[in-house]
Design a protein around this nucleic acid. Sequence first.
RNA 1: GUACUCAUAGCUCAGUAGGUUAGAGCGUCGGAUUGUGGUUCCGAAGGUCGUGGGUUCGAGCCCCAUUGGGUACCCCA
Length: 458
Amino acid sequence: MKPSIPKGTRDFGASELRKRYYIINTIKGEFERFGYAPLETPVMENLSTLTGKYGDEGEKLLYRILNSGNFLDGIDASQLSEMSHKQLQTQIAEKGLRYDLTIPFARYVVMNQSRLAFPFKRYQIQPVWRADRPQRGRYREFYQCDADVIGTNSLLNEAELTQLYDRVFAQLKIPVTIHLNNRKILAAMAETAQQSDRLTDITVAIDKLDKIGMDGVRRELTERGIDEIAQNIIADFLRIEGSPEVVLAQLAERFANSEMGKKGIAEMKTLLQYLQTATDGGSPLANHLKIDLTLARGLNYYTGTIYEVKTNIVQMGSLGGGGRYDDLTGAFGLKGMSGVGISFGLDRIYDVLEETKGFAQIDQTGTTRLLLINFGGAAEQYAFRLVTQLRQSGICAELYPEPAKLDKQMKYANAQQIPYVGFTGDEEMTRQQVKIKNMASGEQKSVAIADAISRLIK
RNA sequence: GUACUCAUAGCUCAGUAGGUUAGAGCGUCGGAUUGUGGUUCCGAAGGUCGUGGGUUCGAGCCCCAUUGGGUACCCCA
């Protein structure tokens, strides 16, 4: 049998993991700095938790787990042929793999509401699964790194999360643009165009502006049944360009009669003011901040601020996204809990750094400081005792597991980039010493065990 | 769900117009070298050319189908 792994999944070797840990540690460090606490949830959830949350497109991408045992038990064979695959699905699968970290978080909050102190801030770094067609920057199993705060309406949270995005990408040295928009502004735009009930159709179309241009957007809107008068109003909005202040001023003119629009603008203004205040007039962020009226985000649970982070140093989808949701916990029976959160796409960040040689500074050596050569017999016993002692002293050390040829053992040390090799031959044993060789310089010296320990402690 | 593209040794790839026994580099193993690695030299193992069918005197190469990988659309981190 030829071994293989499912399409869109990957194994991670030592060198890849060291790079992944570097990213994770950077993100985790900022999460902690901003006061978020860790959380992990199961890889599988009840399907009832997941369904109805991600829209039709998302629902198709859910991995469903076949019930254990005889999953056909209780299914009428005569009805089988008349059942749609969707109907059958609900009867033979009641669990699924998590699709994102936000819904499991909402589920967790509702289940533990009596124990949690609100506002509740948590971060979560775990894999999620989507039954998508893999391609560049897209995998079936990938990591999301989420930070969410729930139980507070304050836009201070939005400001902090913007800073959090900024800090992480500044540390990773990936120049990004943080795209900001507000669902209320989008809703007001649809309202102004007399198309409030077609918000989703409109956002799907305008989201493609930079890809297909204004003509393409108009074509898409036509296909979705939006008339030309409405299209003109929408196109007029999309012409708004410039600094956040300019964009907001122009929006204010158009939203003179829209309560929803005014609210969206006010929220955006407050957010920007917080950011300005933070640095006392200095440049608030290391990265670009842009009000992007075409930013919509597919998930329909967003109600206020929405985020998306993109880089233009390499061709890649968004590196992160998020936003405010007013009623995510409502579906689980807890009303009136507003929250806001952001997500980092670990795998895409990895791909960007890999392509731009952004990992150059990562230490790729292993942790082992010393390899003891195995000469067999009494020398092996002596070396095993020594390696035990070294480890008890907190030194990462290895003893080659068999008395192989010296050449082979030395090559092993090279391959693992182990900085020191220790020899314990007859001479060293009688003197209770070990000969330590520095693999980089080639220098070697016989020293007493105690000296060896103090030498090897960094 | 649609389209495009690729598939030869463990890995990365050559393979000329269809023509004898399918090659290289890296890696692995052995040797030069039984207590001193990186460099070097010598040698060895390793392939039903993704699979099935067809055309041909003859197919890794041409045709059809199929499977798998990649990419684009859709959607998304």
